[in-house]
Amino acid sequence: MIFEYLLQIFLLIGLVILAYLAIKFKDLIACAISLGIFSFILSLEFYILQAPDVAIAEAGIGAGLTTAIFIIAIHGTSRWEVEE
């Protein structure tokens, strides 16, 4: 039980750190990759909360498809975030 709580605390801290990094980075591909890792850790959290259906859907769509769509869109525009 205490192991489960510790794992959840680690995963939630990792979620907050990755969300902050996704805002902070100037390289947009790094932002997309950190959002992908964010979705992957979120799917692990869903699995610990006993929702394997939602975990599979999150790992497939959030970590796979959304990252691919972001990378394709970044290749179509510019890679670096510029200050206006």
């Binding site: 394997p52 259906d53 599979i56 859907a57 497939g60 769509i61 796979g64 498809l65 691919a68």
Partner: peptide, 14 residues
């Protein structure tokens, strides 16, 4: 098993 049409289709689309 856990999963279904929507999840499997999303994995293949990945």
């Amino acid at each position: 098993t856990p999963g279904g049409g929507f999840q499997g289709g999303a994995v293949i689309a990945t």
